[in-house]
Amino acid sequence: MCPDVSGIRVVVTGATGFVGRRLCRRIVEGGGRVTALVRPQSDRRVLDGCPVDVAVVDLLTGSGVAEAVSGADVVVHLAASVRAASRAEFRLANTVSTGVLAGVLASSDVPPRLVVCSSLAAAGPAPAPGRARGGGGPARPRGGVGAHQQARGQAPPPGARARPGAGAA
C-alpha cells in the first residue's frame, strides 16, 4: 500500500536504478509528482510509461541540481555506485556526490527534506529469511561498497531497520 502523497513533489536521485525506478512508480501511483535526477549516460528507458519529469544533472559538480530541486518537498537520494575501480572512485560516486547534493539543498531558501538511503551491502545480509536486520548486532558489510559505506558512517545506527523482511513493518 502506498501512502497518500498526492500533491507532494519528490525528487529522486538514482531514479533509473533498481530501487529508484520502483520508487518513482509508487510515488506516481500515490498521486505524487516525481522529478528524476539522472546522469547524461543513464538509460532512461526504464522509466518509460511512468510520468516523471527528468532533469539531467551532475552530482559531482552540482550542475543543474538547484534548478531541479527547486520547489521540491522531499529529495530521496538513492544514487550510488556499487562498482568502482578504486576506493577513490567509490568516494567520488558515493561520498562526494552526497555532500554536493546536501550542500545544494542547504543553500536553498526553503530546503526540502532529504532522505538518504544506503546499500544493503553496508549492513550485510538479514540474520534469517523474513527477518529484518536491526541495529542490535554488528554490521557485516559485503564487498568493497559495503566496507566503503560502513567506513563513511552509512551502516545503520543502533535501532535502525535495514532490509525489512517480508511482512516486516
Score class of each variant (00 low, 15 high):
Gly7Ile: 06
Gly165His: 09
Pro141Tyr: 10
Ala79Trp: 01
Gly137Leu: 14
Ala139Met: 13
Val104Gly: 05
Leu120Asp: 07
Val56Asn: 00
Ala15His: 03
Arg152Gln: 14
Gly136Trp: 13
Ser97Asp: 07
Val5Thr: 12
Thr16Leu: 05
Ser63Pro: 06
Gly7Asp: 09
Ile27Met: 02
Phe90Trp: 03
Thr61Lys: 12
Ser107Pro: 03
Ala121Val: 04
Pro51Met: 09
Gly14Lys: 02
Gln154Phe: 13
Val38His: 01
Val69Tyr: 04
Arg21Gly: 00
Gly32Phe: 03
Ala128Leu: 15
Met1Gly: 13
Ala162Glu: 04
Gly137Ile: 08
Val76His: 01
Val46Arg: 02
Val56Ile: 13
Asp53Gln: 12
Glu67Val: 13
Gly135Tyr: 02
Gly134Ala: 09
Arg142Phe: 10
Leu59Ile: 07
Val34Met: 06
Gly144Phe: 00
Gly99Ser: 07
Ala80Asp: 02
Ala151Arg: 12
Ala147Cys: 06
Thr13Lys: 00
Arg22Gln: 09
Ala106Trp: 05
Val82Phe: 07
Ala85Trp: 05
Gly137Lys: 11
Pro3Phe: 09
Pro156Val: 10
Glu67Ala: 15
Leu114Arg: 08
Pro112Ala: 11
Asn94Val: 03
Val76Ser: 05
Arg131Gly: 03
Gly144Pro: 05
Pro111Leu: 08
Val116Tyr: 12
Ala160Ile: 11
Gly146Thr: 01
Val28Trp: 06
Val100Gly: 01
Ser119Thr: 15
Val65Cys: 10
Gly165Thr: 11
Val34Ile: 12
Gly146Asn: 05
Val52Thr: 06
Cys2Ile: 13
Gly167Glu: 10
